[in-house]
């Protein structure tokens, strides 16, 4: 089973490179302010390739000023020989058409997945049994389960897409893999809400996000509202719910054609070192 390791900075990438994983993902999935510098990207790319591993560059949604930076990064990757680019912004997806050596892979922000919602009551309100069944069928699909939407993205060169560990949607992944979409499933963390107005930065009093001190490199928080009683977590500009993956289901998903699983090293997963990473990978092998 392929587990790609996702990291957001070079120190974490170095730890990840020491693992057995054959694929590294590097970059910022949710925060435009945390885009790496071109030199960090080049270092990440070359050190991954030198270690004999595959490389994917992860990109977030972007405001206009950051598009200039992403163009520079895509040119660099093109010059270096190409890579997979996990894309979360329509602008980036559009620009990628200029670089045939770069392979677009849809990130989680371009795959609408209503069941990321932390409350399940949407499918539970008092209607007839048949109506409830219909509501559940609609709710537990993703935007890519609609063939024309999938074909639209494939027409733009997209070859794969990121999904979440939400067991209720797993039956709907098969039709995607059957249509030759390379599906990657993120283990553990499901993004519930993403903002540009970084909640962590505001909480900690960061005043200029362009010069943010990156508290997200070291801190993540549980969020507790006693009346709501729903487990949510804050890491950087993203609120998550956590999932509980297991080996058996991973094997089933692999049989359904899921190509890889993604594990993100971060304070949220509480895995920031090579030894902690090995521990998690071994646990997943054992469960």
């Amino acid at each position: 089973m392929n587990v790609a390791i996702q990291t957001g900075n070079l120190p974490l990438l170095r730890e990840a490179l020491a693992s057995d994983s054959k694929k590294m993902r590097f970059g910022s999935e949710f925060c435009m302010y945390a885009l790496p510098s071109a030199s960090a990207l080049e270092t990440a790319y070359t050190s991954t390739r030198d270690a004999g591993k595959d490389f994917a560059y992860v990109t977030p949604r972007l405001a206009d000023g950051y598009m200039d930076k992403i163009r520079e990064h895509l040119s660099l990757l093109d010059d270096l020989g190409g890579a997979t680019v996990v894309v979360n912004d329509l602008g980036t997806l559009s620009v990628l058409r200029e670089y045939p050596s770069l392979t677009p892979h849809l990130g989680r922000q371009l795959v609408y997945t209503p069941s990321r919602c932390p409350w399940k009551e949407i499918t539970e309100h008092p209607v007839s049994y048949f109506a409830k069944r219909k509501v559940k069928r609609i709710f537990y699909q993703t935007s890519l389960n609609y063939e024309p939407t999938l074909e639209f993205f494939k027409g733009l060169g997209v070859v794969g897409a990121d999904m979440d560990w939400i067991p209720e949607i797993f039956n709907n992944l098969r039709p995607l893999t059957q249509r030759n979409l390379q599906v990657s499933v993120h283990l553990y963390s499901v993004p519930v809400a993403i903002t540009r107005k970084c909640h962590t930065a505001r909480f900690l009093g960061e005043e200029d996000l362009d010069h943010c001190s990156r508290p997200c490199y070291t801190k993540a928080y549980s969020m507790d509202n006693e009346l709501l009683d729903i487990g949510m977590y804050l890491h950087g500009n993203t609120v998550y719910k956590l999932a509980d993956p297991d080996r058996k289901t991973m094997t089933q998903l692999a049989r359904r054609g899921v190509r890889e699983f993604v594990f993100t090293m971060s304070p949220l997963s509480r895995v920031v070192s090579h030894t902690e990473l090995e521990g998690v990978l071994q646990t997943l092998q054992a469960t």
């Binding site: 009551e121 949407i122 809400a193 540009r196």
Partner: peptide, 24 residues
Amino acid sequence: CSNINASCYLYHHQFPELIEAQRA
């Protein structure tokens, strides 16, 4: 919106616990 609309799954669908938490 506090979050980016298309990436926010904190639906405003009203259910008892949410209504209670909002009221409190």
